[in-house]
Design a protein around this nucleic acid. Structure first.
Length: 568
DNA sequence: GAAAAGGGCGCG
DNA sequence: AAAGCGCGCCCTTTTC
């Protein structure tokens, strides 16, 4: 049963019960005040979890509906996020022939401006004074859009995969809101202690003492009393005056130079980065009441990966992970999918040899054992090179050996690269397609094939083509890996709910962090082992959902710890 | 004086 | 060894 929700009039919501087997004819409709919605949701969600008569809530945008429901204690098991699904169906090669994909851009294609959207965590319970244009959809369009999407899926080239993708994407939208609601358990005290230990006490203004001392040292050693080490041109000039032949001020380049100024300079860079990215200002802005609550954006990346808005949650440095600490009596289960992308490539290509290499062990060790390369580091660099399109260096040199050992896997990424070079779309396992090259790509390519094309035109076109080929090469793997991760997390979410039936969301095991191929669950100590088992079982299930019976394994590590820093 | 671009670095 | 993919965010410099 689908229940469509849309805003009507001022402060009302219309719920429409729709049974798809009845041609989109509504079973019943009900208009209620917004304040009454949590009660409706709770009543409809009260059935046995997972049973067929469970509702699937259909709305324009999960971020606009779910935070207030969650705050009111109304948890939702399943939804359809029409905005996210629309993006997928408009772009997918599997639905290219459908009316939904062929129509001119409409309101559902509008980019949602971050500032037009209420910050999810601060949304009051259905603010009645919300401006009228806040709703994305006009009153009639939720049902029209839902019906159009259903039609597009049904007439697509692979409805099963698309349905799975859209369900996973929508589950991701729910999880994104729940992650923010729960927050990552975070000790501001530990973070502050770490900063103070490395930088000195928090200054009222200006640089902390340790950084100030380093700047003084740099200025003396380089005999540049006005040096601003934060200015790359300034710094480069000072280095060159001191006889250091660097072409940039990047740390990895400086690291190879032997000179007494390099050590303090590298220390300055590291500490300065810590201060500006995750210093006290960051702490004040993002950590409150023992929780770090970043603003996740499911589907925020072209490949279907998530993005974040503010807080930099997906770049939380290893350096500060000791501040992520479980509550007393609780544990963190930190889970990481081992070598996810190469394993996804294995499944995509049906490469039996690579599946065997990854069976029961570290995939890179397995590649060494297969005789393709001599050392684990080589296996890793070769695989990354294949998936990213490396042509030079060690990675490029290893490609022929990798190709000989795993022809199917390598052919899959090569084919994706060639398609991109021709300006075609490529499509992930479940049906997310890459965008077409934009900007001046078309012009450049036609200029290069024109009769009067110069050599420079051709070079430029080839270079742009290769660039786009590397993007599509990586797209098929990264997008499919993102799908695996969504399925993993959605499955895990259901299993966690089942571990503590009837318990309030944040009083039972729940997801608190997601990082592409890694999740953290916050759980009462006594359930930690069961959570770890659920994490592994969910990974197996995700593998089956994407690749059926093909024997590619998806091992996950699951560490039961008090602090994130203790994992791996 | 604001916006865009560039350099750099954190994460996967 | 620092290339080859996807990001977000900070600071400085350049451009409008």
């Amino acid at each position: 049963m689908h229940i469509l929700l849309e805003r009507v009039g001022r402060g009302d919501v219309r719920a429409t019960w729709l049974d798809l087997s009845r041609e989109g004819v509504p079973e019943r409709m009900e208009t209620l005040a917004l304040g009454g919605l949590p009660a409706l949701v709770e009543a409809e969600e009260a059935g046995a979890p997972g049973s067929a008569d469970r509702p699937r809530w259909v709305w324009d945008d999960t971020r606009a509906w779910y935070p207030a429901l969650l705050s009111a204690g109304a948890r939702v098991e399943r939804c359809v996020d029409l905005r996210l699904c629309h993006v997928i169906l408009r772009g997918s090669t599997l639905t290219a022939a459908t009316p939904l994909a062929r129509a001119d851009p409409g309101p559902w294609d509008a980019v949602v401006e971050p500032e037009a959207e209420a910050p999810a965590v601060h949304t009051a319970l259905f603010d009645l004074d919300e401006p009228a244009d806040a709703a994305v959809a006009s009153p009639a369009s939720v049902r029209d859009e839902f019906v159009a999407q259903e039609q597009a899926i049904a007439s697509s080239a692979d409805p099963r995969r698309l349905r799975l993708l859209l369900a996973a994407e929508s589950a991701g939208a729910l999880i994104g809101v729940e992650l923010q609601y729960a927050g990552l358990p975070y000790s501001a005290e530990r973070h502050d202690a770490l900063l103070t230990g490395l930088l000195g006490p928090r200054p009222a203004y200006g640089r902390p003492a340790v950084l100030e001392g380093l700047v003084r040292e740099l200025r003396e050693q380089l005999e540049a009393p006005d040096l601003n080490p934060d200015s790359p041109p300034d710094l480069l000039k000072a280095l060159q005056r001191a006889g250091i032949l660097a072409t940039s001020t990047r740390s990895w380049e400086l690291r190879r130079i032997e000179h007494p100024v390099i050590d303090p300079l590298l220390r300055y860079k590291k500490l300065s980065r810590l201060l500006t990215a995750n210093g006290w200002t960051w702490l004040d802005a993002w950590v409150h009441d023992g929780r770090f609550r970043p603003d996740y954006v499911p589907g925020g990346v072209v490949t279907g990966r998530w993005a974040t808005r503010g807080g930099g949650a997906l770049q939380l440095p290893r350096q500060v992970r000791g501040a992520v600490v479980a509550d007393p009596g609780w544990k963190l289960v930190v889970a990481d999918a081992a070598q996810l992308e190469p394993r996804v490539l294995t499944g995509l290509s049906g490469d039996e040899a690579m599946a065997a290499a990854g069976r029961g062990k570290d995939l890179y060790e397995g590649i060494v054992a297969s005789g393709a390369v001599d050392a684990r580091a080589q296996a890793k660099v070769a695989m990354l090179g294949a998936m990213y399109g490396a042509t030079t260096g060690e990675s490029g040199r290893l490609m022929p050996r990798l190709t000989r050992a795993f022809p199917r896997a390598v052919r899959l990424v090569e084919d994706a690269a060639r398609a991109g070079e021709r300006g075609e779309k490529v499509t992930s396992r479940l049906g997310r397609s890459s965008p077409l090259p934009g900007g001046r790509w078309g012009e450049v390519q036609s200029a290069a094939s024109a009769a009067d094309a110069t050599e420079a035109d051709e070079r430029r076109a080839r270079s742009l083509g290769r660039d786009w080929g590397r993007f599509t090469r990586n797209f098929v793997v990264q997008a499919s890996a993102a799908e695996w991760a969504l399925c993993w997390m959605a499955e895990l979410r259901n299993r966690l709910t089942a571990l503590a039936p009837g318990a309030a969301f944040t009083a039972s095991p729940h997801l608190v962090y997601f990082l592409h191929d890694e999740v953290i669950v916050h759980t009462p100590e006594e359930l930690a082992d069961e959570v770890a088992a659920a994490v592994r079982a969910s990974a197996e299930q995700a593998g089956r959902l994407l690749f059926g019976a093909f024997p590619v394994e998806f091992p996950v590590t699951a560490a039961i710890v008090d602090s994130y820093a203790e994992a791996k």
